[in-house]
Computed example of a mutant assay.
Amino acid sequence: MNIRLAAIGAGRLSSRRIYPNLHLLPVELLAVCDLDRGLASSMASRFGAKAVYTDHKRLLEEIRPDAVIICTGPEGHEKLAIDAMEAGAHAYTEKPPAVTYAGAKAVQETARRTGLICMTGFKKRFAPAYVKSKAAIDSAEFGKLNLLSIDYAAGPTYDNDPTNPTTQFLLDFCVHILDLSRYLAGEVASVYAITTDHLNYAVNLRFEGGAIGTVALSSNRDWTVSTEKVEITGGPGQFISVENSISMVRHSGAIIADWHSPNHSISVGDSMVETGFAGELEEFCNAINEKRTPRSSISESMGTLKLYEMIMASTKSGQVIDAKSFA
Rank of each mutant, 00 (worst) to 15 (best):
Gly269Arg: 08
Lys124Ala: 00
His56Ser: 15
Met312Lys: 10
Asp258Gln: 11
Gly11Glu: 14
Asn286Tyr: 01
Ile266Met: 15
Val52Gly: 08
Cys174Arg: 07
Gly237Leu: 06
Arg64Glu: 04
Leu217Trp: 02
Val27Cys: 07
Ala193Phe: 05
Glu274Arg: 05
Lys105Pro: 09
Tyr192Glu: 06
Ser218Asn: 07
Lys144Phe: 02
Gly253Arg: 11
Tyr130Gly: 00
Ala185Trp: 12
Val175Gly: 00
Glu28Val: 06
Glu187Val: 07
Asp83Ile: 04
Ala67Tyr: 01
Ala31Met: 09
Pro165Asn: 04
Gly88Thr: 02
Gly235Asp: 07
Thr196His: 08
Ile63Cys: 14
Ser149Met: 11
Leu184Ser: 14
Ser41Leu: 10
Leu147Lys: 14
Ser317Thr: 01
His251Gln: 12
Arg113Asn: 15
Thr227Val: 04
His198Ser: 01
Ser325His: 13
Ser299Ile: 00
Lys95Ile: 00
Ile232Lys: 10
Met85Trp: 09
Tyr19Asn: 06
Ser297Pro: 06
Gly318Pro: 00
Cys71Gly: 14
Ala153Phe: 05
Leu145Phe: 02
Phe47Asp: 08
Val242Lys: 02
Leu148Asp: 08
Gly209Tyr: 07
Glu282Tyr: 04
Ile256Pro: 01
Glu28Leu: 11
Gly103Val: 06
His23Thr: 09
Ala154Phe: 12
Tyr192Cys: 10
Ala211Tyr: 11
Val215Asn: 09
Ser247Lys: 13
